[in-house]
Each structure stands twice: as structure tokens, then as C-alpha cells.
Design a protein around this nucleic acid. Structure first.
Length: 937
RNA sequence: GGGCGAUUAGCUCAGUUGGUUAGAGCACCUCGCUUACACCGAGGGGGUCAAAGGUUCGAGUCCUUUAUCGCCCACCA
């Protein structure tokens, strides 16, 4: 009842106005419950779990791309009749969200510590509850047909249960451990980060050469005058935490100091000279300062030599008590001050410009500090092993396949994952400590210590990395750890569609933990799309504020325009630039479709329904079984005529429509979404609108209604094929009478067209293409000769031997085609489209006129246009001579190819046969051209 | 230091397993407000497919090397 008294078209506006349509259509879909899966136990469902966007409420065009691709796949499968579930979600986005709220607080002049944990979390919840709908609304504007009633937030109780269950299992299996390690620390966010959350950037800096005075043997403070051990460093402020200097045992320069000690300047602490192979003799001075507390390399060297680890830095990026006089000084201020002091004391040998790669916080872009700290880790290697195996065995397939290498490379070199975060917003680590030093994990909040029963217990203060919960997404959204029907039916899911930028963050971890938790793969396919770049080819970034909000784009161009551009604009996994020009193109196409529909619908409405036309429409309907009655090639025309006098051009466009449907379906099944979109677009615009619609006018002007059912059917098919890409405009047209007939349901659940072999009509395709070729040629000549567009001109058309082009079409080989009769049928169409009157169709052997004529020898016909006073012998001779030369070129190419014995032997025989057919065709055409040249004298 | 991608018309990009004379959109030039559409129609110009080798009967497509740009991974101070 939501549709359509289909055949009562309302007045359609002259131009498509998305703003008056989209909301209404979306509400109709939602009210109708079309986004819900129609579960059928006997059918394999198609399921996509939406990558949950951050609640921070900043959707950008990357999300629009994600949603568009997923919605296309979802709508396509829904139309194919699969039980289709698109599961939406929202991510609490731990650090990002906490940052946003802290910024809000900062405006009020307070920090989260002023509020305390509980009050702060209340504030975040307030904020989240205020904005969580914004994202959903943005998705709805894009046309996202997800089952919104199922939306899951990563902090929902069900997810908490799953997170804790996962944690406990990993903990019990020894795959989660707590330890003091060197980790990446963001001083601004005040938390540990995982390796993935650190982005390395080349930064222009300096290499400082520092002199460490050499101590006299046995002394703690007396130095050898004038003897220095020189080390090069990019971070001089970390020297306060040095616990050794190192030389390579192979290095000659420093051998004299082996076994000695040096006095660390500034803090006057003696440190040993150690020897380690890891020191690069060729770099800097060939000696290295060792700061195990602030450098991953040094940490390892320190471990090897049993060096103490000093923490020279506080959690907020100031120097610690270790720094003596510089305690409490901000790290970069301290760098300047220390360098300056060393300079004054003659302990700075030199400074060089040096560019080095420095880690930055993925969320706030602050330079991270390697810091020694007690954190929680997941032991990844055992999990990765399984995840590698399922992909190697093709149980999970990745598109595009170049990302296999990326996946394996990372997985095979995987390192442990630091999962604890020193922030408040997120899943609190489900571990409790009792006063007696016991530690245990639990799913339900405990009241007593699991080991000693003490009631003096406290939960770990830290929270989990936001990806710890999102990695559970495919199974937790379906009910895990409970054994739900949804989980049983929809899991493993079908396609995981997301950007290639989070293959490690998310995709890889989902595979690992999905296997761990459920014993099954989480999804069968991984489809990775590219990044949406701005007009200048730069990546849009939330943190840099360069993200583009899709809503103004939709307001200006319409959701369909945006979607179409995103879908058609680039290949799988490739980055794509978006520009206003492209969006205009998308909008124009929506408008084109709208106007095709306007023409078809109003034409149909203004014509008295004829019984014959109605019958043709029904029998052409995709629901009817038209295949059977067509029979073999011989009986084709007869049975067609029995179906209601289908003209050649009708057969042509119906054949093309079904072929395009087949292609679109094929491309979509290969994830070649752009190819599918472009193919359908080109059909609709270039074939249906530019040719068939124009052809249909010829009969309609004569009062012949027979094109109407064909127009309606092709429009109908076009709408179905375009619906996944442009859901709003297609549905609106459908609701306005665009459905061919008998539609009782909206387009969103209409049946997806597939290729119907009964409608493929190669003969009609070939003939009409020749007619098109003739029309084009005449138009071309007219334009060249400057014939006024309104003027009717005379033309002579002589069919060329049909064998020439029949041989070029494998489906037609051996067929007898009466071209004279066929072109006779198409004469009114050609006449109208080329503004030719009278149009003389010459019989075989009948000579076209000579004299002041322009002649074109085409593949299917020779066209002769008397041009009277516009005739120019020289120009004509040149024109034909040029064509002769081209044909001769082609001929010689073909001859040499066919003359090559290797080619004849090694190329497939279809190819050889085809080339031979071409040769014959070119030869025959060349004869025609030479004949023309002769006549010019 | 490894790995990946890109390099095709003035611009932005397609080109599905190697097989006609390499396509599209936009831009450009010439016409045209013909009762679906000027968010349009008709016609046209424009490419040695980054370079060099190689494999092949045949290469934009496969292989090697190089150049430029971009991205990812990596503990070189």
C-alpha cells in the first residue's frame, strides 16, 4: 500500500529536485519495514556488518563511500531475493570521544580530573546521547538501508559482556598478560598507545654531538682532562636517563675507552661504556648513548647488558626527578636548555641538520614518547597463526587481491598488542586487585577476591583500546556470547567492506578474534575500498579538519548524485578524488533519468491504451516466461509478430537492455561496482535516451502506440538496474508510474533483472546498429557541409553485402538477412533522425546518383547525399582518398597478420576466422571506395 | 631499509581472464532553445597508454630495469 497506484502519474517536475523527494522516499521505506531481512531458513543470507562510525559525529565523504558501496551490495542482494541483513553500529571511539568532551570542558575552564571519573563519564554519556542520532541521520540522508532497529553501540551491555568474556578467556589462556614494557605514550592524551596508533612522520631536526667526559679509573667524579666520549643524538633531553654508552667491538676509534666509565653531564652520573654489535660504526660518531627508558633499540640493548632503566620523563611530557636541575621542565624546552648548557660547558661538539622519522599520536598528532610503563598486552602470535591459515586456504578472500600481501606481511611479523589505555571512556579492564596482592579477571563485577575472599578489592583503573571491542563486531552484533538464532543464521557474515586504511586496526583483528571466539571465520569476503581525496588529491582527515561533510553535498547535488559519483568514480581499492565537476555530472544523470521517465510516463498516459500494447507489455514483463515461446532462430520473427508486432528497434533495445542487465549483475558479483555503474549509465543515456527514445517518436507521431510498452519496459528495467546506485530518484519515478505494470511493491524490493536469453536478439542489434551508423554518417555530412539543421535533404542508401558484417558477428554466422527489407522497415526512423526526405532505398545493382554528391561507404551501406551547390570535387576527392588510405592501411595490416604462418597456427581459430572476416569486409569496402573515387574522375 | 599503488586525451579516471582502429565524464571547437531534458541535443578535434628492454602469432594488459609522485610497514641513534 506504500506504492503506487502505479499508473496514475502525478505531474512530474521539469527537473529532478532531490530535496523534495529524498526524505519522503526514505520514510516510506522505513515505514514499510523493507530494511529488515526477510528470513528464509532455506536461503543463504547476505549479511554486511557496518563498520561502526565513531560517535564523535563527524561523518565525512569516506563514510559516504563506505555506506554507498555497502548499500549498493545490500540493495542488489535484497532485489535478488536474498535474505539480506545490514547490521548498523556505533563505536564509542575511546580516545577520540574523550578528547572531544575534554575540549568541551576546556572551554568551561575545567579538566576531567576536576570532575572525577564518575562525573566525567556522565558528561561523555550526555554528549554521546546528544550526538549519536546525528550519525544515524546522516546515514539516512545517504539512503543507507540498514536495519536500524538492530543498531548496536560498542558500550551496550551485550558488548560489555562479550568484551569481558573475551578478556577472561584470553586471560585464562595466557594470551593476555600484564607487564612493564616500553610503550608508546601520548603525553597530551595521557595514555599508552598501540603501535598502530603511532604514525611515523619525517621531521626536519638536528643531530647533536654530545661530549661525555671520560672518568678516571675508579673515580666517581674525576674526569680525564680533555678526554671525551662523543655520541650523536636526535633527542638530547633524553640523556638524563642514559644508563650507558655503547661502542661496537669492531670500532677502532673508541676501543681505548672499553671497560671505562664516562660522567653523564648535567646530572653528573657515572655510566659504563659497553660493547654491542648493534652499534653502527658508520653512523654519527660510531658510538651510541643508551637510554633504555626512552628508546626501543636502547631498551633491547639494555636488556642484553642488564642495564638499569631510568624514567626521565613524567606522564605529561616533563622531565622527571632523574633530570636533576631540569626536573619539571617541559621536554622540548628542556631539550633547548640542555643543549644550551652543554654548549656553554664546551660539551657540544657540533650540530648537524638531520631529518628523522618521529612517531605522532594518531588521534591528536602529539609527538609520542617511548616510556616505560606497566600495561596490559595481548599475545598475538598464536591468534595470528590461525588467521593466516584461513586466508591462505581461501576461506576468506580479499578484494582487491593486492592486499593479501599486506595482510600476510603484517600478520607474519605481528607484535603484541598493548590494549590498556589510561583514559576513562571505554570498557574498563575487567581485572580486580585485592589488598593482599591477588589479581583476577571476571565477567560479572565481583564483590570478593576470587583467590582469598577479601572484600577489599579494586578494579583496574584503565580502559581497553577501542579496537578491543570493535574486533568482536561481526559476532557480538549478532548476539555472541549467547547462542542466538541470529548468530546461527547470519554468521559467518558475507562481506566485510571497509577502507584499506584499517586492515590492521580492524579487519585483521576481527579475523583473529572471530576465530578465537567462535571457531569460525567472521566473514567470507573482505572488500577494501580506497580513500576519498579532496580535489587536490589530499586525504581527508578528521584530526586535521579536512574532512568534507556529506550533508551540504547532498543538499546541493542530491544523495543519488553523490552516490553515483562515489560508485562509478574509481576502481576497487583505488583512491578517488571528488570534485564539484563530478558531482554535477552525477546530478545531471539523475536529471536525465528523470526526464526519460517523464517522457515515457507522460507519453503512456496521454495515449489511449490499446489491447495489443498491453499484451506486449505483459509478455515482455520479466515476470512472464517469455523465453519459451521464442524458439529457435528460424521461428523468431514469426513468434515475435505473434507477440504484438515488435519493430526492429524494439527488439534492439530490449535485447540491449537484457544484455546490460547481465553485464551489471556479472560486474557486481565481481565487486566491480564502478564497471556496473558505468555500463548501466551508458546504456540508459547513450542507447535508451539518445537513440531508442528518439526512434520511438517516429511511430508515436503517426499515432502508432506500439513503442509504449517497450518504452515502459526498458524504463522499468533501467530503474531496477540503477536502483542500488541511485535509490531515491529511481524509487520516486517508480512510484510515479515508472514500473512497467502490475507493480504492487516498491522498487526497493522489486526483482533484480538478469539476462534473459530469449530476449537477446543479435540480428536486431546488428541491423539497428547499421541504421544508426547510417544516421550518424548523414548527420556528419550535413554538419560538414553546413546544411541547416531544419532542412530536409535527399539521400540514397544502398545496402552492402550482408555477408561482410554477418561474418563479423559470431551469433549471426550462417544467417540469411534481407537487408533491403530490414532497412525499408527502418526507413522512417532513419528519415526522421537524419532529417532526410526523400530517402531512396536502392535495390541491389541499382546505381546511386553521381555528380554533385557526397558518398560514404559504411560497413553496412553506401550512403549518397546529393549536395548540389555545396559540392566541392576537390574536398570530396580528398575525403574519399583519406578513407581509401585508411582502408588500405587496415588491409595491409590484416594481410600481413593473416600471412603470418605463426599467427594461423598459434592463434585460436575464432580469432583467425574473425580476422579473415575483417579482411573480406575491408576489401569489399575498399572496392566501394575506389569506385567512388573513379566516378569523381 | 622493505612492500604496495599510480603514471592512459587539456583535467579526473575506466579499461573485467593479453585478441578489431584504446574508452568515458568534464573541458575545448562548430551548430541547434525540434512539444522528456540547455542539469539538453547533433557533429568534431584531441592519446607514440611514463621510459627502455623482454616474453608472445599478438602487449595499455604479463616479466625485468629505470624515472617521477603517493601510500603502508620497519627500532638505525
Amino acid at each position: 500500500m506504500t506504492t503506487t497506484e502505479t499508473n496514475k502519474p502525478t505531474e512530474m517536475a521539469k527537473a529532478y529536485d532531490s530535496s523534495t523527494v529524498e526524505q519522503r522516499i526514505y520514510e516510506m521505506w522505513e515505514r514499510g519495514g523493507y530494511f529488515k531481512p526477510r528470513v528464509d531458513p532455506d536461503k543463504k543470507p547476505f549479511t554486511i556488518i557496518q563498520p561502526p562510525p565513531n560517535v564523535t559525529g563527524e561523518l565525512h565523504l569516506g563514510h559516504a563511500l563506505t555506506s554507498t558501496i555497502e548499500d549498493i551490495l545490500i540493495r542488489w542482494h535484497r532485489m535478488k531475493g536474498d535474505p539480506t541483513l545490514w547490521m548498523p553500529g556505533l563505536d564509542h571511539a575511546a580516545i577520540s570521544t574523550q578528547n572531544v568532551v575534554e575540549r568541551e570542558l576546556a572551554k568551561e575552564g575545567i579538566s576531567r580530573h576536576d570532575l572525577g571519573r564518575e562525573k566525567f563519564l556522565e558528561r561523555v554519556w550526555e554528549w554521546v546521547n546528544k550526538y549519536r542520532h546525528v550519525i544515524t541521520d546522516q546515514h539516512k540522508r545517504l539512503g543507507v538501508s540498514a536495519d536500524w532497529d538492530r543498531i548496536v553501540f560498542t558500550l551496550d551491555p551485550q558488548v560489555t559482556k562479550a568484551v569481558r568474556t573475551t578478556f577472561l578467556n584470553l586471560y585464562n589462556d595466557g594470551l593476555i598478560y600484564r607487564g612493564e614494557r616500553l610503550i608508546n605514550w601520548c603525553p597530551k592524551d595521557g595514555t599508552a598507545l598501540s603501535d598502530l596508533e603511532v604514525k611515523h612522520e619525517e621531521v626536519a631536526g638536528h643531530l647533536w654531538y654530545l661530549r661525555y667526559p671520560v672518568l678516571k679509573d675508579g673515580s666517581e667524579s674525576e674526569v680525564e682532562p680533555g678526554e671525551f666520549f662523543v655520541v650523536a643524538t636526535t633527542r638530547p633531553e633524553t640523556m638524563v636517563a642514559d644508563t650507558a654508552v655503547a661502542i661496537n667491538p669492531a670500532s677502532e676509534r673508541w676501543l681505548k675507552y672499553r671497560g671505562r666509565r664516562v660522567l653523564l653531564p648535567i646530572v653528573d652520573r657515572p655510566i659504563p661504556v659497553i660493547e654491542d654489535e648493534a652499534v653502527d660504526v658508520a653512523f654519527g660518531t660510531g658510538a651510541l648513548k643508551i637510554t633504555p627508558g626512552h628508546d626501543f633499540n636502547d631498551f633491547e640493548i639494555g636488556q642484553r647488558h642488564g642495564l638499569p632503566v631510568l624514567n626521565g620523563m613524567t606522564l605529561d611530557g616533563h622531565l622527571s626527578e632523574v633530570a636533576g636541575p631540569y626536573e619539571g621542565v617541559e621536554r622540548f624546552a628542556a631539550r633547548a636548555a640542555i643543549v644550551s648548557q652543554l654548549g656553554r660547558e664546551g660539551l657540544l661538539e657540533k650540530v648537524e641538520d638531520y631529518t628523522t622519522s618521529i612517531g605522532h599520536c594518531d588521534r591528536c598528532n602529539t609527538i609520542v614518547e617511548p616510556l616505560i610503563s606497566t600495561q596490559w598486552f595481548v599475545k598475538m602470535e598464536p591468534l595470528a597463526k590461525e588467521a593466516i591459515r584461513v586466508v591462505r586456504r581461501n576461506q576468506i578472500r580479499i578484494v582487491p587481491d593486492r592486499f593479501y600481501a599486506t595482510y600476510f606481511q603484517w600478520m607474519e611479523n605481528i607484535r603484541d598488542w598493548c590494549i590498556s589505555r589510561q583514559i576513562w571512556w571505554g570498557h574498563r579492564i575487567p581485572v580486580w586487585y585485592c589488598a593482599d596482592g591477588h589479581m583476577f579477571a571476571a565477567i560479572e563485577d565481583p564483590t570478593t577476591c576470587a583467590e582469598c575472599g577479601s572484600t577489599a578489592i579494586e578494579q583496574d583503573e584503565d580502559t581497553l583500546d577501542t579496537w578491543f571491542s570493535s574486533q568482536l563486531w561481526p559476532h557480538v552484533t549478532l548476539g555472541w556470547p549467547d547462542k542466538t538464532k541470529d548468530l546461527e543464521y547470519f554468521y559467518p557474515t558475507s562481506v566485510m567492506e571497509t577502507g584499506y586504511d584499517i586492515i590492521f586496526f580492524w579487519v585483521a583483528r576481527m579475523i583473529m578474534i572471530g576465530l578465537y571466539n567462535t571457531g569460525e571465520i567472521p566473514f567470507e569476503w573482505v572488500y577494501l575500498h580506497g580513500m576519498v581525496l579532496n580535489k587536490d588529491g589530499k586525504k581527508m582527515s578528521k584530526s586535521k579538519g579536512t574532512g568534507v561533510d556529506p550533508l551540504p553535498v547532498i543538499d546541493k547535488y542530491g544523495a543519488d548524485a553523490l552516490r553515483f559519483v562515489l560508485a562509478a568514480g574509481g576502481g576497487p581499492g583505488n583512491d578517488m578524488r571528488l570534485s564539484d565537476q563530478k558531482l554535477e555530472g552525477g546530478r545531471n544523470f539523475a536529471n536525465k533519468l528523470w526526464n526519460i521517465a517523464r517522457y515515457v510516463i507522460s507519453t503512456a498516459a496521454n495515449s489511449p491504451p490499446s489491447p495489443g500494447a498491453e499484451r506486449a507489455s505483459r509478455s515482455q514483463s520479466r515476470l512472464g516466461d517469455s523465453g519459451g515461446e521464442l524458439g529457435d532462430a528460424g521461428g523468431r520473427l514469426q513468434s515475435r509478430s505473434a507477440r504484438g508486432e515488435l519493430a526492429l528497434e524494439d527488439r534492439w533495445i530490449l535485447s540491449r537492455a537484457t544484455q546490460v542487465a547481465g553485464e551489471a549483475d556479472h560486474f557486481l558479483s565481481q565487486f566491480l561496482i564502478n564497471e556496473a555503474a558505468q555500463r548501466v549509465r551508458n546504456f540508459v543515456w547513450d542507447e535508451f535516451a539518445d537513440w531508442y527514445v528518439e526512434m520511438s517518436k517516429v511511430r508515436l507521431r503517426e499515432g502508432d502506440q506500439s513503442p509504449i510498452p517497450v518504452l515502459r519496459e526498458v524504463l522499468d528495467t533501467s530503474l531496477r538496474l540503477l536502483h542500488p546506485f541511485m535509490p531515491f530518484v529511481t524509487e520516486e519515478i517508480w512510484q510515479n508510474g515508472g514500473a512497467a505494470s502490475g507493480a504492487t511493491e516498491p522498487l526497493i524490493v522489486a526483482e533484480w533483472p538478469t539476462i534473459e536469453s530469449g530476449k537477446v536478439d543479435e540480428e536486431a542489434e546488428a541491423i539497428v546498429e547499421i541504421a544508426i551508423e547510417i544516421v550518424r554518417s548523414i548527420r556528419n555530412t550535413r554538419a560538414e557541409k553546413g546544411v541547416e539543421p531544419g532542412r530536409w535533404v535527399e539521400a540514397h542508401i544502398q545496402p552492402r553485402p550482408a555477408e561482410d558484417w554477418i561474418a563479423l558477428r559470431s551469433g549471426l554466422v550462417g544467417r540469411q538477412i534481407d537487408m533491403e527489407a530490414a532497412l525499408q522497415k527502418l526507413a522512417p526512423v532513419m528519415s526522421y533522425l537524419a532529417r532526410v526526405k526523400p530517402l531512396h532505398l536502392l535495390a541491389p545493382g541499382e546505381a546511386p546518383p553521381t555528380g554533385e554528391v557526397v558518398t560514404s561507404v559504411l560497413s553496412g551501406a553506401i550512403v549518397t547525399l546529393p549536395v548540389g551547390g555545396l559540392f566541392d570535387v576537390e574536398a570530396e576527392r580528398a575525403r574519399i582518398a583519406k578513407q581509401v588510405a585508411e582502408a588500405e592501411d587496415e588491409l595491409s595490416r590484416l594481410k600481413s597478420k593473416l600471412g603470418d604462418a605463426n599467427f594461423r597456427v598459434k592463434a585460436p581459430k575464432e580469432i583467425v576466422a574473425h580476422e579473415e572476416a575483417r579482411l573480406a569486409s575491408v576489401q569489399s569496402r575498399l572496392e566501394g571506395l575506389r569506385g567512388q573515387l573513379d566516378q569523381l574522375g
